[in-house]
Write a protein that binds this DNA or RNA. Structure first.
Length: 957
RNA sequence: GCAGGGAUGGUCGAGCGGUCAAAGGCGCUAGGUUGAGGGCCUAGUGGGUGAGUCCCUUCGCGGGUUCGAAUCCCGUUCCCUGCACCA
């Protein structure tokens, strides 16, 4: 048995593979397969979730290599991006949370952590750690092509890529809202946040309500409801200010200025505004020109948007309830002398919503049981109505210009109108608050100007991408629809960043190219990466890349001509990419960009051929997350379980696109299985009385039915496992190649147990088993390469099993009748057991009767008829005069009519000899003497009449 | 809301028109092995019947197509994932 946690064996083979360079792939005359998996962003240690991602391509690469393909499986490091910058800063700041994570979750030694103040060091540290772990898992990667995305050569490549896109008109300039920390003076990502992870940014419409030449600027998500405005709300307990906005005076809350100043250029504070003094004054609605009174409301959040809200009590639950509260609040009405004015205010309907009356806000408040404007449930009520009206609302009839339009349409038109006529503006705010940076500062929404975009909205480009997608294989096929959807939906993408590691935008060096954009066509870089260490990056210019990748014939530099041609041919050989593997949450961006960029830059014959999408990893049923400490590092998993067990578990517990769940308990089961597998060699050696060698294996003519059965079964497994692997179904492949395979062998051992005494039988058994073993080891090699090399070596297989030929299934060895025969024997044993159980007695003799020939004929006729048509079956049988006793034919026809459609009929089987050959087994199994009759010479209870084809009759006594 | 996926036995998870009371794992029960335990091996694991290889109920819920449906169609309820500047 091979001790799986004996890392010497793993190391031994890893070293041998590296020494013999069997995974280093260069162009030759074989057919090629080029597959890549998303290169990792090494900002932390590799955990078991990553393990699955990178094991799948390794298994496939190994499988294809054994099938005789020239397979290229490379790896690189995506060190582009901002997260490590933040990490380095936090480490420098001695942020305890960050230090804990790196010390305890990523298990970085103390002396290393101290160097983590340098972001470059972090990615270097982890990329070399990734490299080591990948080697320890036995990945068949061509390491000569390893690179980091900050290598100068790669940057040259990215610059070329972006100039290509730019020259095709797929890059444009604009502005873009981002999360921003005024404290750090930097945009912030989710990983930089203390609070507010995953919070979105919303666009709000600002509406200017005039008052004596100044403007109260109210913010809204629903400008179409302006027609239903009844008043303005401000919060009199908060501070308001007047600001200068390009010559206009705006009145907003003081706190909202904090946010807005990052979004509006040239906005300046003029003076404080005494909020209570504004209550009761009137402003003018820019759309309807109606005058609205300014009223006090406590629900108005001065930090949200502009701190000014206009009120639509018919459709906004908050407004409705605030108005109701106010009407009942004598004290406030008295304080501001509002009583009569407020009592007059009635909701105004704007939107017609099926199933609701004129004032849906009132109904929804009722439904949710909202008590006042402080009620928690108010938010839910608002959301519900917002959704409903957005989806199904129609503008009401009395609104001249917009009647009968859907709410969505009317909203867009009204926003446009407000902007064009300068009666409104736009601003952004977070969907939820608070959003707080790790430095403790409240984050804001900032508008970045001069931002560069990739124009995924471009119809020409979308069309190219669609065409590219169409010719690709997508696994699993269901996600194709997702791709189509995303390609259609993608809008312009901000592709430049202020901070992070990466490549500068070649024509605007103040910007860095964002990480999802510099990782779209890099697979093409692998093809040439192995040459790069010998070439000075200064020699790489656009003419070089255009010539290598696009055959532009443009290269004019001084790289040796022969070398240059070799590089060019190498790319030509490996491209197009056969398979791209990545996680399912990247379908909407990374993988779609990959399609976009390839279709834009490369000619059609270099477009990628296939995509495989992965599911996520769970740990004992919970989502894995480094930041929550809920991970198991691969290194630890390898240490405790061994590389092959880890690989096997990751491949066997779920298909790649399904979520897998790492469960210690199930891991143990897997381990036992593979131990059993590795012990198999010894078991065979025991049976064949000598050590095994593949050198002398010759299958020859197999006589015994049970041996033939095993060969059939094994060949079916080979066939199914191969088909499964072709489609990346690692779980199914293992189901066939390991679990069911083992089951077959268990059954086989059970069947032959009592025959091992017999010398002749034993010889054939051992030949059969060695044949099986040789196939089995090869079948398992992609999954558990170390164990398999060790076994292969032990039985004197030739060379590395990693380079051995993948077992090809032999149709000649699959004998349906043999399989059926075994089924009959097993069925018979089970039936007898059942009868024993029912009668609750241990028989001494069991008599078995085979169905007479005429029944078989009737059976065949029934099979031909194909449906339970008793009349026809009977008619045809009688006509052929199959049997003298017509009544018996009728009974039998009736009996089998339904049965026959269910039975897989493989033709006449010599049931008598099959059972006679299995008598030893049956007697042994049942603990009684078993006698089989071709003709019922002894049948005291006339049981033989029950015999059917494939189902002998039984009499026990 | 939009898009995609799903609902199967104690549980995880196959199956996607007949061979389905439904693979396989885990769990549980019994027997064997063992000094004990673990591990391993064997059998069982919806209900009934109790001399016959059968019958009944079951694959979210309700209808339908078919000789036949877990599988196809229609409706319905519930669940999960994504919706962006984050790699």
């Amino acid at each position: 048995m091979i001790i799986l946690t004996n890392h010497d064996i793993e190391n031994k083979w890893q070293k041998k593979w590296a020494e013999s360079q069997i995974f280093e792939s260069d162009p030759d005359n074989r057919e090629k397969i080029f597959l890549t998996v998303a290169y990792p962003y090494p900002s932390g240690a590799m955990h078991i979730g990553h393990g699955r991602t990178y094991t799948v391509p390794d298994v496939y690469a190994r499988f294809k290599r054994m099938q005789g393909y020239n397979v290229l499986f490379p790896m690189g490091w995506h060190v582009t991006g901002a997260p490590v910058i933040g990490i380095a800063k936090r480490i420098a700041r001695k942020d305890q949370w960050t230090l804990d994570i790196y010390k305890n979750v990523h298990k970085v030694p103390e002396e290393e952590i101290s160097k983590f103040t340098d972001p470059e060091y972090i990615v270097k540290y982890f990329s070399s750690e990734y490299h080591q772990v990948m080697q320890r898992l036995g990945y068949s990667i061509d390491w000569r092509r390893e690179f980091r995305t900050t290598d100068p050569h790669y940057q040259k490549f990215i610059e070329w890529q972006f100039r290509q896109l730019e020259s095709k008109g797929f890059v444009s300039k604009g502005e873009h809202p981002v999360k921003y920390c005024p404290g750090c003076e930097n945009p912030v990502g989710d990983h930089d946040l203390l609070e507010g992870e995953g919070v979105g940014i919303n666009e709000l419409t600002l509406v200017k309500f005039e008052m004596d030449g100044d403007f109260f600027v109210a913010a809204t998500f629903r400008p179409e409801t302006l027609f239903g405005a009844t008043n303005l709300w401000i919060n009199p307990d908060e501070e308001y200010i007047k600001v200068d906005m390009h010559g206009e005076n705006w009145i907003i809350s003081k706190k909202s200025y904090y946010n807005l100043v990052h979004q509006k250029k040239g906005i300046n504070v003029l003076e404080d505004v005494y909020a209570p003094g504004m209550i009761g004054k009137y402003v003018k609605n820019p759309l309807t020109c109606i005058e609205h009174i300014i009223l006090p409301a406590s629900f108005v959040d001065p930090e949200y948007a502009s701190g000014v809200v206009y009120s639509v009590p018919a459709h906004a639950p908050a407004d409705y309830i605030a108005l109701k509260d106010l009407k009942e609040n004598e004290e406030i009405l008295e304080r501001y002398k509002l009583k009569e004015k407020v009592q007059k205010i009635q909701p105004i309907n704007v939107v017609t919503l099926k199933g609701f009356g004129k004032f849906p806000a009132a109904e929804i408040i009722e439904k949710f049981g909202v008590k006042n404007q402080q009620d928690e449930k108010l938010k839910d009520a608002t959301n519900e109505l917002y959704k409903l009206e957005h989806a199904k609302g129609i503008m009401s009839n009395h609104i001249e210009d917009y009647k009968d339009l859907s709410v969505q349409k009317a909203r867009d038109e009204i926003i446009n109108y407000l902007l064009e006529s300068d009666k409104g503006d736009l601003m952004h705010d977070f969907a939820e608050k608070p959003v707080i940076c790790r430095c403790g500062t409240k984050a804001v929404v900032k508008i970045l100007e001069d931002q560069w975009f990739l124009k995924y909205s471009d119809d020409k480009w979308k069309k190219l991408a669609m065409n590219c997608l169409e010719q690709e294989n997508i696994i699993p096929p269901e996600v194709r629809a997702n791709f189509e959807y995303y390609i259609g939906w993608l809008d312009d993408w901000a592709c430049s960043r202020r901070t992070g590691l990466g490549t500068k935008l070649p024509w605007d060096k103040q910007w860095l190219i964002e990480p999802l954009s510099d990782s779209t066509i890099y697979m093409a870089y692998y093809a040439i990466a192995k040459y790069m260490k010998d070439i000075d990056s200064d020699k790489l210019d656009d003419s070089f890349f255009s010539d290598v990748y696009l055959n532009a014939g443009s290269y004019s530099g001084d790289i040796d001509h022969e070398l240059f041609n070799e590089i060019k041919n190498e790319f030509d050989y490996w491209y197009p990419l056969n398979w791209r593997l990545s996680a399912k949450d990247l379908v909407g961006n990374h993988l779609s960009f990959h399609i976009f960029h390839h279709s834009a830059i490369f000619p059609e014959d270099k477009w990628p051929k296939g995509i495989v999408v992965f599911g996520m990893g769970l740990l004992e049923g919970h989502k894995m997350s480094s930041s929550k400490g809920n991970v198991i590092l691969l290194e630890d998993a390898i240490k405790t379980h061994g590389a092959d067990v880890v690989r096997l578990f990751l491949m066997a517990s779920a298909e790649p696109w399904q979520d897998f769940d790492w469960r210690e308990k199930e891991l143990k089961g897997i381990k036992r299985r593979i131990e059993w597998f590795s012990e198999f060699v010894e078991r065979i050696a025991e049976i064949s009385d000598s050590s095994i060698s593949l050198k002398s294996l010759e299958l020859g003519e197999i006589q015994k039915s049970i041996n033939k059965w095993l060969l059939s079964q094994v060949n079916m497994r080979i066939k199914d496992a191969t088909e499964a692997l072709e489609g990346f179904q690692t779980r199914k492949a293992l189901q066939e190649a390991l679990f069911l395979f083992k089951k077959d062998i268990d059954h086989y051992f059970h069947r032959i147990e009592h025959e091992l005494e017999n010398h002749e039988a034993r010889e054939e058994i051992s030949i059969t088993l060695i044949y099986v073993l040789s196939n089995w080891i090869r079948l398992m090699t992609p999954f558990t390469p170390h164990t398999c090399e060790e076994m292969w070596n032990k039985i004197e297989g030739e060379g590395f099993v990693s380079c051995a030929q993948w077992p090809e299934y032999e149709p000649d060895l699959i004998d349906e009748k043999v399989l059926k025969a075994e089924e009959i024997v097993q069925g018979l044993a089970n039936d007898i057991k059942e009868i024993k159980k029912i009668t609750d007695r241990q028989p001494e003799k069991i008599h078995v009767y085979i169905a007479p020939n005429w029944k078989l004929k009737v059976f065949e006729i029934a099979k031909e008829v194909g449906r339970p048509d008793i009349g026809q079956i009977m008619g045809r049988s009688i006509k052929l005069n199959l049997h003298d006793d017509k009544k018996e034919i009728a009974d039998f026809a009736k009996k089998i009519a339904r049965e026959v459609t269910k039975t897989k009929y493989v033709g006449k089987i010599d049931e008598y000899s099959i059972i006679r050959d299995s008598l030893d087994f049956l007697s042994h199994e049942l603990g009684a003497e078993v006698i089989v009759y071709e003709d019922p010479t002894y049948d005291p209870q006339n049981k033989s009449r029950n015999a059917m084809p494939y189902k002998p009759a039984i009499y026990i006594e």
